[in-house]
């Protein structure tokens, strides 16, 4: 009985196996209730089932080509907005809206590159993986080296108050979370990229030093572009094509990719550190696109090799297994 108590059985509950009552019911490894009290055998079986399903949805270089095409296309379009708006060939407002979409969406493609989903190390697709990562987040003034290191750190230490670099995004409500995305970017705040810099300094490895150097260079470069454009008479273009889209994009991704799937950031286990959530648009495709697929973020944390566009389908197939593991899947 001691062993059973250790795994959370309450006094008086049916034991996992009772040799006295040797019938079909007691032969079950465990009654599969809300995920508590699973024995090792059941966990193993569930994990095998989970892995079998996840394997079907893992990224392949062929299906990830679209990420490369979209990223390179959007980056070239964004670059072209500068001369085209400065020469009055294109109006700046539609380019501003497109730049905001590129800023927020760029993180998604970069995110795939962070997990090597576009091209694994040692393969011929690796170049494209690194290219996508490097150019996707330039608009956010957020170098890939820093983004990758901080994101992988987030996976290793998810929801840890000290070691999860994204923990500073936590807020008690959605409204306050939006406000906090902006407050965290204030010059004296210890949030967002400021916090990342501090974490990288603490890590102190060669990779961390490179990430800090890349960040400094990208920040100096962007400031030089802003100042030069502004004093050359193109301040509005600089503001609407880069400065404002960056702020809007950063707030958007910090809310949808960090706060929403991890709130209230009190779970630390494999099945507790993310949540399945529903947006204000219910189960419609609007919520799926608006959250950029983050409603199914648990699938990403369990299997980062599943690309963003397949997490939804993987989630619905994994749902019975997740429920048995105690994940609250009632939202979707």
């Amino acid at each position: 009985m001691d062993r059973i108590d250790d795994i959370g059985m309450r006094t008086g509950e049916t034991a996992l196996y009772d040799p006295v009552r040797d019938d079909a019911e007691t032969r079950l490894a465990i009654p599969l209730r809300a995920g508590d009290g699973l024995d090792k055998h059941t966990r193993l079986q569930l994990r095998k089932e989970e892995q079998r399903i996840a394997k079907k949805y893992m990224s392949t270089p062929q299906q990830m080509r679209i990420y490369t095409v979209i990223t390179v296309g959007c980056f070239l379009a964004w670059l072209s907005f500068f001369p085209l708006t400065m020469l009055d060939i294109l109006p700046v407002w539609p380019c501003f809206i497109a730049s905001c979409v590129f800023a927020a969406g760029g993180y998604i493609t970069s995110h795939e590159a962070m997990h090597d989903n576009i091209g694994r190390r040692g393969t011929k697709y690796r170049f494209w993986n690194e290219l996508v990562g490097e150019i996707s987040t330039i608009i956010l003034i957020f170098p890939f080296s820093m983004a990758r290191m901080m994101h992988l750190h987030h996976h290793y230490h998810c929801n840890h108050p000290e070691n999860d670099p994204d923990y500073t995004d936590e807020a008690p409500s959605a409204f306050k979370a939006w406000i906090k995305t902006w407050l965290n970017r204030q010059p004296g705040a210890d949030g967002s990229i400021h916090h990342y810099k501090r974490v990288l300094e603490r890590i102190g490895t060669k990779g961390a030093q490179k990430a800090l150097r890349d960040t400094m260079m990208l920040q100096l470069f962007s400031m030089a572009v802003f100042f030069t454009m502004a004093w050359s008479g193109f301040a509005i273009e600089a503001a609407l094509l880069w400065w404002l889209p960056r702020h809007i994009g950063l707030s958007y991704i910090r809310f949808w990719l960090s706060w929403a799937p991890h709130h209230p950031r009190d779970g630390h286990g494999r099945y507790e550190n993310t949540r399945v959530f529903r947006t204000w648009f219910g189960k419609t495709w609007v919520g799926h696109w608006m959250s950029m697929g983050m409603q199914y973020h648990i699938v990403h944390h369990l299997y980062p090799g599943i690309p963003n566009h397949r997490t939804k389908y993987a989630y619905y197939e994994l749902k019975p297994v997740l429920e048995k593991r105690g994940v609250d899947c009632s939202a979707l």
Binding site: M216, F226, G233, A235
Partner: peptide, 27 residues
């Protein structure tokens, strides 16, 4: 560089916000 980044908001005010205000008013 540390000093430069410390005063960056001030430089940003002069280098970007000032011309942005002027050009927005002109617009």
């Amino acid at each position: 560089l540390k000093k430069l980044f410390f005063v960056m908001p001030f430089l940003f005010g002069i280098g970007f916000i000032a011309p942005l205000i002027a050009q927005s008013m002109a617009e």
